[in-house]
Amino acid sequence: MTQQVNVSALNLAPVREGKSVREALQHTIRSAQAAESYGYHRFWVAEHHNMHGVASSATAVLIGQIAQATKTIRVGSGGIMLPNHAPLIIAEQFGTLAALHPNRIDLGLGRAPGTDQLTAQALRRNGQSAHDFPSLVEELRHYFTPLSANPHVRAIPGEGEDVPVWLLGSSGYSAQMAGELGLPFAFAGHFSPKQIVPALNLYYDTFKPSSVLSEPYSMIAVNGIAAESEGEAHRLATSLYQQFLSMIRNRPGKLQPAVENMDTIWSPHEEQLVMEQLSGSFIGDGKTVAQQLKEFASTLRVNEVMIQTTVYDEDKQIDSYKQIMDAWQ
């Protein structure tokens, strides 16, 4: 019997060229409302800092706004970069969100800074680093337990709240840790496609049943863009290509409009680098993208796919959500 695969959405509140941060945040909320109406399972936003093209830096604040504007879809972080924060603060923030929106809040945790090193230093005044990730996760999880491990320091709100904790990763480190702790695992296939299979295998091989999960639960984030035709989908995807090209050139900026021909923008070598990073992408008409995603999920034995749709035109980005889910169902 084929297992049911959930479909979710990932969003970085992209700031589009010629538009404001306010417009980016408002459109992210509208995107979540659209995803909910189409039947998506969850809608996650990700923590990044010091990036002109990303408006989701105050991740918990944005999650609260999205949860308030929706009714049923799960809302969460994809993810909170835990070494940037005191675990108590995150427990209180997500405990508050869970108290306001019961059974709808997810807490995905990453160990990367989500920014450059200078900004990471500004965030991490107490000297935490990725090496502290296991102890930070343990401390955070304790704050959610009904009887806190430290009776003198308690997360209120937070203590006793049902906040599912996910580990996120783009390599095998978090995959193994998630497996050993018996936690759900989400892999960043949208920018690290070559590591998908090794990381998932490591997660499945090291998984130990826990009070959270009796068996593994995995999710893969991918780039997904659908349109009425394959040609139009690939044209829309040129905004995604430009975004990755700007990062390769170390000149990240706002999301650029689609172009007719990328050959006037990138060199053959740059094209190769961009497409290698984006090989975990599904681009075409809705029926084709949905079918490819189903085959992908089945082959990798994943429980869920999370689609990031990087499209400049706001209406066409939302239409891509609809086309994929219409074909999926």
Rank of each mutant, 00 (worst) to 15 (best):
Q3L: 13
Q3A: 12
Q4T: 14
N6E: 13
L12E: 06
P14R: 08
V15L: 05
G18K: 00
S20G: 01
V21F: 06
R30N: 12
R30Y: 10
A34W: 11
A34Q: 15
Y38W: 00
Y40N: 05
W44M: 03
H52L: 09
S56N: 10
S57E: 13
A58E: 04
A60N: 14
A67I: 11
A67H: 08
T72R: 07
R74P: 08
M81Q: 03
P83E: 10
N84F: 11
L88D: 00
I90Q: 00
A91I: 13
G95D: 14
P102C: 01
R104V: 00
I105Y: 03
G110F: 07
A112Q: 12
Q117L: 15
Q121R: 14
A122E: 14
R125F: 11
Q128K: 15
Q128E: 14
H131K: 08
D132R: 03
F133E: 02
P134A: 07
S135M: 10
S135T: 09
L136D: 04
V137I: 09
E139M: 02
Y143M: 02
Y143T: 05
T145W: 14
L147D: 15
R154S: 13
E159A: 15
D162L: 12
V163K: 05
V165W: 10
S171M: 04
S171G: 13
Y173S: 12
S174M: 11
L183V: 04
P184T: 04
F185D: 08
F185K: 07
F187Y: 04
G189A: 07
P198M: 10
F207Y: 09
F207I: 10
F207D: 03
I220G: 01
N223C: 04
I225D: 02
E228G: 01
E228S: 04
E232D: 05
E232Y: 01
H234W: 15
H234Q: 12
L236K: 09
Q242V: 00
Q243A: 03
L245E: 03
L245A: 05
M247K: 08
I248T: 08
A258S: 15
E270K: 14
E276T: 15
G280T: 01
F282Y: 08
F282V: 06
I283P: 03
K287N: 13
K287M: 14
K294A: 00
E295D: 13
S298E: 03
T299Q: 07
V305C: 05
I307T: 00
D313V: 05
Q317H: 06
I318W: 00
Y321M: 07
I324P: 01
I324D: 07
W328C: 07
